[in-house]
Amino acid sequence: MPELDINDPELTARLADVDYFTAKLNDATAALRDYLAACRAPPHAARPQDDGWPMDAGHPDLVSPIEAARRVAHDDDTIRRWAAAHGIGRQYRKRWRISLRRLNAFMADPARKM
């Protein structure tokens, strides 16, 4: 935005706020685009022996059992049990991480057994 010669301090402050929030919105938009690209990316960063699981526990598709439980309105112990029994999660350094893609597919499967 070009600099304007404005003598009104309130207007100048509000324009500065707009610039600040525009920059924040642009940063958030870029982060969202990066997240979506990572989720759509082929599992080339996955270990072949782990059947397509990301190597990094911080991958955008992976969440904690507590976050997964919050998303599907179930208990986190249930999520851990499903992770072990149905392959929707795996352990990274002794901590469970749940794949959102696998969790969503599991929840949408009409043949699933609780």
Results as ranks from 00 to 15, higher is better:
62 L>A: 03
45 A>C: 14
23 A>Q: 12
31 A>G: 06
21 F>T: 06
20 Y>M: 09
27 D>C: 09
26 N>V: 14
53 W>C: 05
30 A>T: 15
59 H>C: 05
32 L>G: 08
13 A>G: 02
58 G>S: 12
11 L>C: 11
39 C>V: 08
40 R>S: 05
46 A>Y: 00
50 D>F: 06
22 T>G: 12
39 C>D: 08
42 P>A: 06
42 P>R: 01
30 A>W: 01
62 L>R: 00
60 P>C: 04
43 P>F: 01
39 C>E: 08
11 L>T: 08
35 Y>K: 14
46 A>L: 03
45 A>V: 09
64 S>A: 15
41 A>Y: 00
53 W>Q: 03
21 F>L: 13
41 A>H: 02
32 L>C: 12
19 D>N: 10
14 R>Y: 01
43 P>T: 01
58 G>C: 11
35 Y>R: 15
26 N>R: 12
15 L>K: 03
35 Y>M: 14
29 T>A: 15
11 L>V: 15
60 P>L: 02
50 D>R: 09
11 L>M: 13
25 L>G: 13
66 I>A: 13
40 R>E: 04
34 D>F: 01
47 R>F: 11
24 K>Q: 13
27 D>H: 10
10 E>K: 01
49 Q>E: 14
16 A>N: 13
36 L>T: 02
36 L>P: 01
27 D>G: 13
24 K>S: 10
20 Y>P: 08
38 A>W: 04
38 A>H: 03
21 F>C: 07
23 A>E: 13
33 R>K: 15
50 D>Y: 04
33 R>E: 15
35 Y>C: 11
13 A>K: 00
38 A>V: 08
60 P>G: 04
52 G>N: 08
48 P>S: 11
55 M>V: 14
53 W>V: 09
34 D>R: 01
29 T>C: 06
25 L>H: 11
55 M>G: 11
56 D>E: 11
13 A>E: 01
41 A>S: 06
22 T>E: 13
25 L>Y: 11
53 W>M: 07
12 T>F: 02
25 L>I: 09
63 V>H: 01
53 W>R: 07
48 P>T: 05
64 S>H: 07
40 R>Q: 04
46 A>H: 00
22 T>A: 12
52 G>F: 03
20 Y>Q: 13
53 W>F: 09
59 H>M: 07
41 A>R: 04
15 L>R: 01
42 P>Y: 02
27 D>V: 07
49 Q>D: 15
30 A>E: 12
27 D>N: 10
33 R>Q: 14
15 L>H: 01
13 A>Q: 00
9 P>H: 04
44 H>C: 13
47 R>E: 15
55 M>N: 09
27 D>M: 09
